[in-house]
């Protein structure tokens, strides 16, 4: 159907490109001029592979950890950094003592903003919030009509983790109601517990890899603040195509 065809002994595009790559890499490139001793030392210690190139004795994230922005060592520090980052990103955070308070908070949000329909997915943290909500609801767990989701005012989801370092919320298509629920409605409400806060992006990725071992969800997305654009005269506008509002209900 496409360029994979291989008529009459002609090299396929795949074979041609891989052959070009092998040929190109026969001459090794010099190492970049690193400033850090750790990387230089790590490389000196690294063994040579069959290609004559040094294999990596140090991994980028391992050396970079102390140089990247701080994500906090203790749970209290992480919470403080997360809250600061989310505020700068213009996300709205409600810190709530328990699930009853979270349900009351969602009720108030729906009332204040005059939401007519909110969409959600089946999840032990999400479902209890919806029982008393003063508007109609759309559940997206199984097949759903994307036209109906487009007309929803808010999408309510759980999350995989919250990253203090950058103020990011990690959602997945496997555990957070698919791909569209967290991006198509005008507002995105995330319900999470304080024990879901991790320090760094690396921690969040490692946790997701361990949780979904061998079978990653088809989408993992770090959401860092409400949708935004600066395309017109570099002036910040919230709500370009994704949610204009990102609201975190943080329980515990």
């Amino acid at each position: 159907m496409t360029a994979q065809g291989n008529p009459a002994g002609e090299m396929s595009a795949r074979d041609t490109i891989l052959a070009r790559i092998r040929e190109a890499l026969r001459v090794p490139a010099p190492m970049p001029h690193f400033q850090s001793q750790e990387i230089e030392k790590g490389h000196a210690a690294g063994a040579k592979s069959s290609t004559g190139l040094p294999t990596l004795a140090v991994l980028p994230l391992d050396v970079a950890k102390p140089w990247l922005p701080d994500g906090g060592e203790t749970p209290a520090e992480r919470l403080r950094i997360l809250a600061e980052n989310l505020e700068k990103l213009r996300a709205i955070v409600h810190r709530l003592p328990d699930m009853t308070a979270a349900a009351d908070c969602l009720f108030a949000l729906a009332r204040e903003r005059d939401w007519k329909v909110v969409a959600y997915h089946g999840h032990p943290l999400v479902e209890p919030l919806l029982s008393g909500v003063p508007c109609s609801t759309l559940r997206v767990d199984v097949d759903f009509d994307k036209n109906r989701l487009e007309a929803c005012d808010a999408g309510i989801t759980a999350c995989e983790s919250l990253v203090a370092q950058t103020g990011s919320i990690l959602v997945s298509s496997g555990t957070c109601g698919g791909r569209a629920l967290s991006i198509l409605p005008h507002a995105h409400v995330v319900i999470a517990t304080v024990d879901q806060v991790v320090s760094t992006l690396g921690d969040a990725l490692h946790q997701a890899q361990a949780r979904h071992a061998g079978r990653l969800p088809s989408m993992l997305s770090f959401i860092t603040g409400p949708s935004r654009t600066g395309d017109i005269e570099r002036i910040l506008v919230l709500g370009a195509h994704g949610p204009k509002e990102l609201i975190l209900l943080l329980v515990g």
């Binding site: 298509s173 496997g174 109601g177 989408m219 935004r228």
Partner: peptide
């Protein structure tokens, strides 16, 4: 690139919709 802590959406895709997922 843009003076941000993180770009707003950084998304990893592993193939099309999987069994058990509701869309994609």
């Amino acid at each position: 690139g843009a003076g941000q802590p993180m770009t707003c959406y950084n998304t990893l895709y592993a193939g099309p919709r999987r069994e058990g997922e509701c869309d994609g």
